[in-house]
Design a protein around this nucleic acid. Structure first.
Lengths: 244, 244
DNA sequence: ACGTGTGAAAATATTCACAGCC
DNA sequence: GGCTGTGAATATTTTCACACGT
């Protein structure tokens, strides 16, 4: 009963497939999509897994596996039709829907985001801006007037915001997040250096500059340690090793 | 000779360990570090894996495994000393070194980055800014004068820049990257929506807003499809399922 | 021939569960 | 009693390699 035999490939077929796509593969699909769009603009109509993989910075086996999650839309012995692949990836990524975005926190970063051309052009219109500073209320940023943060609930509901972007100082982030969630926003992109606590049904992605820098720092350190170690072990390193 | 028995836990001990830490664990360590720093500021001196895990948004088994990559610095039955843990994580992440940062591309995002307080305070001083626009040359942004992009090589060498941040339009990103690399920069944080091609010894991290949005979009779509599927299968869903 | 699509193998990462120590 | 540290078990992701369609 809880295991009703094999569900017999119905329309829920796409859904089943979508559920199974690993998160890492989803991220890569978005990259492939961008590369493919660029190709299409340049008039390329067909591409092989090898070429696409090279342009996307992955190996071709991984690329083919990733594409297989989307479906089998290549032609053996030939490659993939760029247009076809673009439309199937867009479908899987849900880009046939429109996803209105609200940006909360109109500081330096918020300004940059509000003015960022990459969002609207790709189906993510910035539908609303919010800030706690009353002096900003009504001021247009990137052509969109800023609302006071107290209006989040009504404005988000009215404009059907599906993605909330948090660009506030860290102290404010959790409170803003709570408000977005209670306004019905289920996807959040968080730029504040804070771990947000949210209900299970809310999806959070974070962009954490400090963390990125520290990961790079780790690699610098690892490399330095390795060079030092190699020198100690006499594994032939010419001097200070700046360019192997 | 190339395998000189077990290296007998010498100073290369930290190096060995560092090499083995999975990338995902490194990213989490940076998060733990921030949480721990916050704890320390609030006067917390000791913390259990359960508490720290909760604050960092992971489960405690994973946290303990991650910390075990750093070393065994906890006390059984008690927990971890916050200060001790902070200093060990900092060491592993290479934060005892100073890492000078150069930001290339002083548009909206570049401005935001130049003014971002999170970098300097965490050991990542912004040592130089670059832009291709001659009108910007010499203009101070966030207190730092902008250099022309043609001076990348000399300025980066002089100021020992170890991390380059690319905040240019996509068309310029690869060229800027090449220049940074030839200036000896081995770590790059890329905000441009382009897959950079670099030599093996260069470490690239990317922050791609469009990709983040599309991942969120995927989850919106998956959820919608799932809800639809559940309704079809009659798996008891009350209406349109906005808040389970 | 050529290049996709995919099972099976290998490599990684996560979670479990409990011995060991305070 | 309580909590860490870690091998062993499990799950996930990546890579291999080759059958198959065009």
């Amino acid at each position: 009963m809880t295991t009703p035999k094999i569900p017999a490939d119905t329309s829920a077929d796409v859904r089943e497939r979508a559920r199974a796509i690993p998160e890492a593969a989803v991220a890569r699909l978005a990259v492939y999509l961008r590369v493919l769009s660029g190709m299409a603009e340049q008039g390329v109509t067909t591409i092989s897994s090898e070429e696409l993989a090279g342009a996307a910075g992955v190996n071709s086996a991984k690329l083919r596996k990733d594409l297989s999650y989307v479906g089998s839309y290549g032609t053996r012995g030939v490659g993939y039709d760029v247009e076809v692949l673009v439309s199937h990836i867009e479908r899987i990524l849900g880009l046939t829907r429109k996803h209105s975005v609200a940006v909360v926190g109109i500081g330096n970063l918020g300004h940059a985001l509000a003015n960022y051309g990459g969002f609207p052009s790709r189906g993510f219109p910035v539908a609303a801006l919010f800030d706690i500073d009353p002096d900003l209320t009504g001021v247009p940023v990137g052509g969109i007037p800023v609302h006071h943060i107290d209006d989040i609930t009504s404005v988000c509901a009215e404009r059907e915001v599906s993605i909330g972007v948090i660009a506030t100082p860290p102290q404010a982030a959790q409170a803003v997040c709570d408000r977005l969630v209670s306004a019905g926003v289920q996807c959040i992109l968080n730029f504040a250096p804070v771990v947000l606590q949210v209900p299970d049904y809310v999806e959070v992605r974070k962009v954490d500059l400090a963390v990125e820098m520290q990961i790079l720092s780790f690699h610098v350190a690892r490399r330095a340690d390795q060079a030092a170690g190699d020198v100690v072990n006499g594994v032939g390193v010419d001097g200070v090793v700046i360019r192997p």
